[in-house]
Nucleic acid binder design. Structure first.
Lengths: 139, 139
DNA sequence: TAAATTGTATCACAATACGGATACAATAGT
DNA sequence: ACTATTGTATCCGTATTGTGATACAATTTA
């Protein structure tokens, strides 16, 4: 599994790892029940402390994206399972609420927020076009 | 200007202040060019250090909500002005991008995100109904 | 059962965030 | 010009966060 980190990019290393794993799962490059690199292995590969990988994997677990079995390893959870799905939705709801309440405080209407979200989606689609054509699950 | 803070509510004091001022502005209770309490005054009123108020006012300034004039005071900016509006939009775009990229990483479709945003807006409308009926700008 | 492999827990250190005390600088108002 | 008022800058102590080093515990595998 290929992961790249850039120390002091502002975003913590453990979060960089978690985000990239999330992307690998969502894009289908990591399939359900597939094993992630053991904590020590990934730590050695990235030249960081195992603790940081622990934190990354823990975050993924708390979001229902992976499960861990002592002595066996860390594996991709069934992200389509109701439980995992519910947990993921809970996280997104937090982001949506942040956006909406901030917008309200700044005096934006709901329609303006909707329009902005649509516009950003188009923007992100375009800039991510190259990788995405290759990143979509092919099953 | 009435502001209430609750220390160690998890959210930092300076942010509590900034948020409440934002709300007062968005709701029309603070009008364009109206003066905010001087830093020292608000600090004494809230029994906190002036530094914390400085930080709150600075955040508001960076979002284009207030402007400061040394020796004169801190005033509500024209939040409808293109410059302020653009700055505010820049902040909301950040939140929207966070929501969209997180959703994509978790394998949600854009339509699901839209549906969620609509649903959360309804929820927030209901829970905030009482205050909002009185807080909407009446001009 | 024994050894190897895996995740877990604990302690330690550096950097950052938050809040506080004090001194400084620019402007307003007289 | 002088004084009062306002925002600004600097230094400090504490708490939290991010990362690292090391020892521990459970499970797998032979």
């Amino acid at each position: 599994m290929h992961i790249e980190i850039s120390p002091q990019d502002g975003v913590p290393i453990y979060r960089q790892i978690a985000n990239q794993v999330k992307y690998l799962i969502a894009s289908g490059r990591l399939k359900t029940n597939e094993e992630l690199p053991p904590i020590r292995v990934l730590a050695e590969q990235l030249l960081i402390t195992p603790n940081t990988v622990v934190k990354a994997y823990h975050e993924l677990q708390s979001e229902g994206l992976v499960y861990k079995r002592r002595g066996a390893g860390t594996f991709v959870a069934d992200t389509k399972s109701p439980l995992a799905r519910r947990e993921q939705k809970r996280i997104l709801i937090g982001r949506a609420d942040a956006l909406l309440s901030e917008a309200k405080q700044l005096g934006f209407t709901f329609d303006e927020v909707l329009e902005m979200v649509r516009s950003r989606q188009s923007a992100l689609d375009k800039t991510a076009g190259k990788e995405q054509s290759d990143a979509r699950p092919r099953g």
